[in-house]
Design a protein around this nucleic acid. Structure first.
Lengths: 196, 196
DNA sequence: AAATAGATTGACTAATCAGTCGATATTTAA
DNA sequence: TTAAATATCGACTGATTAGTCAATCTATTT
């Protein structure tokens, strides 16, 4: 494994356990088995390291999600795959998923260019547009759909995390039915209320 | 305003803007208009300050929520009031609401005794139990209900935050219908699927 | 009024930390 | 093979920071 990758991996582990404040760059370098200066050879500042780690993790997740759906899937199938893949990825990569939230609720997020953030959510937004065009889901603003789905996924994930592994997949499946009921156009409380 | 309160207020503002790392105690003291030593007279360590600020904010929110519902309310009415009060409090106290999430996704949360955290969610849990007993909402684990409601509220809040003020209340109301559909026992995808 | 206790101060320190730098090693290109 | 470029090292530093402390002030009690 390259030293750059070792540094990223070690930084992830330490940031999640001790926070940004509680993790000196010297400890990252030491635990990663590289010299102090090597860390700054790859990442000009600690801030850069924090941001690049975030972008790398989100890219990894996006790449995995992009490989999950096929063009022949129905909207519900595709959404189901994205939903399951996300939660299962989060369960396998708990540190990485936690780190995404950690950055999300920190001043570091504001340091990441809007352009980069937009690039990260592009895939989800275009999927949402396709889903809406198909008529399978309620008419509501893209942002709202995106936000609701994300928070539902986060909620289910947090719950599943503390359940026995044997039951996890079933619970995730039930969570999917819930969120699908919420957004599909069959019974449409939201739609009715805004189309008055 | 007491110096202790001034310190807490200033710490909130600075932590939210610059993060825990980016906020030296010296700056908190200076901005609060007190001496360096005074800060440590009230809060033994910076960590203590971070934790006590969190507990104080959650207590404030809980106290407000507790004063909103009356015993004669129906389950749906009571839930509606709690939902609206929470989101509207969050809109008025954006820093405080943000700080709660900030702590939630930081290692500081682990430093707060489980007993204290449990005390904070007691009211919500007991309301959930009452609601379930009434038969108005689906049968599902308390934790799951609690988590789902919380994430739905967070999702709606985050969306409403970037909408024009004139439309906020209507959107919040639509969000309520959604979450109520999700948890009420009328159409019960979750219930059916687990009662097989 | 005297005494006690708590509040407030701000200069001070010991420790820590982000980032530098010149030297050395390793890889790549010519 | 030589030269240039890049990677790696780790000791070092200037700046910062959490927390201390002895002195002073203020309020309460006796």
């Amino acid at each position: 494994m390259s030293k750059e990758k070792k540094i990223l991996d070690t930084a992830l582990k330490l940031f999640v356990e001790f926070g940004f404040h509680g993790t000196p760059t010297s400890k990252i370098a030491k635990d990663a088995g590289v010299a102090n200066g090597t860390l700054f050879h790859y990442f000009a500042t600690k801030e850069t390291l924090i941001k690049e780690l975030y972008v790398a993790i989100k890219n990894e997740l996006n790449q995995i999600l992009a490989s999950q759906t096929s063009p022949t899937d129905s909207i519900k199938e595709a959404f189901n795959k994205l939903y399951f893949s996300t939660i299962n990825w989060a369960l396998v990569n708990q540190d990485k998923f936690y780190y995404i939230q950690q950055v999300h609720f920190s001043p570091h997020l504001a340091q990441i260019p809007a352009e980069v953030l937009h690039e990260q959510s592009k895939m989800h937004i275009s999927f949402i547009e396709k889903a809406k065009a198909s008529g399978d889901i309620k008419i509501m603003p893209n942002d709202l759909l995106y936000t609701l789905i994300n928070s539902q996924i986060l909620g289910i994930y947090q719950y599943v995390l503390i359940q026995p592994i044997a039951q996890q997949q079933e619970i995730i499946g039930q969570g999917f039915e819930m969120i699908w009921d919420l957004i599909c156009s069959q019974q449409s409380a939201f739609h009715e209320s805004i189309s008055i």
